[in-house]
Amino acid sequence: MSDAKKFLYLNRKAPYGTIYALESLEVVLIGAAFEQQVSLAFVDDGVYQLMAGQNTKGSGFKNFSNTYKALGDYDVRNLYVEKESLDERGLSVDDLMPITHDTDDEEDLPSIMVVSRAEMAKVMSEQDVVLSF
């Protein structure tokens, strides 16, 4: 694991309007098989990807929101959400799905971390690779 690279997937689009969100999620799931250190960031309309209560029955889209809850199984444990993006959209962390992961020692740890723009900038600067969607 020591030479595993740090990958950050940066998500800035709401789901369903474009294919970016679903494509990002699929790439994350495929990439996670390669045992890199994978984190996700949600900025701008990307925060809408994590909204609780997504219901696509009327629109006919495949609802892939529950797939984010499987990320913990793929050892993707850090989902960073920018606070300013939530605030601008009138949202708070309570509007987002609960997403958890297990470690060797503990179960059901929260995966979503709300961070300020300054903290998000720091997270990004610590990555080997940032992939944008």
Partner: peptide
């Protein structure tokens, strides 16, 4: 869109 403002806001 917000690409420029987000980039400038998150650049160190």
């Amino acid at each position: 869109g917000t690409s420029l403002s987000s980039a400038l806001g998150l650049a160190l």
